[in-house]
Amino acid sequence: MSELMSDRAIDRSKMQVSDEVAIEITNMNKWYGSFHVLRDINLTVNQGERIVIAGPSGSGKSTLIRCLNALEEHQQGKIVVDGTELSNDLKNIDKIRSEVGMVFQHFNLFPHLTILENCTLAPIWVRKTPKKEAEERAMHFLEKVKIPEQAHKYPGMLSGGQQQRVAIARSLCMMPRIMLFDEPTSALDPEMIKEVLDTMIELAEEGMTMLCVTHEMGFARQVANRVIFMDAGQIVEQNEPEEFFNNPKSDRTKLFLSQILGH
C-alpha cells in the first residue's frame, strides 16, 4: 500500500452524502468495434460521494469515467449527469462538460498559455465571466493548490506534481459540481504523488462529488465512501472501503488486492 498518504487527520465533517442524485448510469454498454469494453454498467452516484474505481489495466475503468463527459460515446443505455441526459445533442454535451471537471493522467495543460491563462480560458469563453473576475477566481484556486507564485509561468517550466495541481485548479475554476480523476497520480514521481493527493483530499473535505480512477489504495481507504472494482468491462464488486479491503467477496477482487497490496 502506498505510504505517501497525508499524515494529518482527515476532517470528515463536510463529507456528507446527500440524497440528491449526481450521476445515474443504467444498463450502459459500449463497444470499440466488436470489442465489448463496458458491459451492462449500472451505477448511481449521489451528490457528495467520493468514489474510487479500481481494477486491472484494460478493465474499462478509464473508459467508464470518460463516458460521463462524453469524451467517449456509449452505444446503449442511459447516462444522466446532474439531471441532463447525455445524448448526441451537442448543447447537452457542452452543458454537462461545463458542470463536470476532469483531471487527466498526463495533465493536458495548454503549453502555449501561462498557468493563469490556462485557468481563466474556459471561464472567460464558456461561462462568459469578465476577465478580471476570472483572474481573481483563478488566483484563489491556485492559492488553494498552493502554487500562486507560478501563475505567470508556462506549464513546461513546472514539475509534474505542480502541473497536475494546476490541472485541478483549472477544472475548479469552472465551478464544477462533479470532478472526474483519470489516474491523476500515475504519471508522477512518488514524492509528487503526495502533493497531488493532498489537494484531492482537501477537495473531498469540502464536499466535492468525486469519481476517481486510481491505484492509490491508501487514498481509497481514507477518503472514499465507496470503492468499485471493475474487471473485463464489468463492475465486479462495490463496497465501503473498510469492507472492500478487509473482507472482499469475489475471488477476482481478492486476487487483485493481494497483487496490488503485496501481501
Binding site: D94, G101, H112
Partner: peptide, 29 residues
C-alpha cells in the same frame, strides 16, 4: 497530442473555440 483536444472538450469549449484558442495556435506554431 490527443489530450489537448480532450482537455479543450472537457472544459466545455465548443468546436470553434477549441480550434481557435487551443488547437490552431499550437498546430500553426
Amino acid at each position: 497530442p490527443k489530450g489537448q483536444y480532450e482537455a479543450a472538450d472537457s472544459l466545455g469549449l465548443d468546436y470553434p473555440q477549441a480550434m481557435r484558442l487551443i488547437i490552431l495556435p499550437q498546430a500553426l506554431k
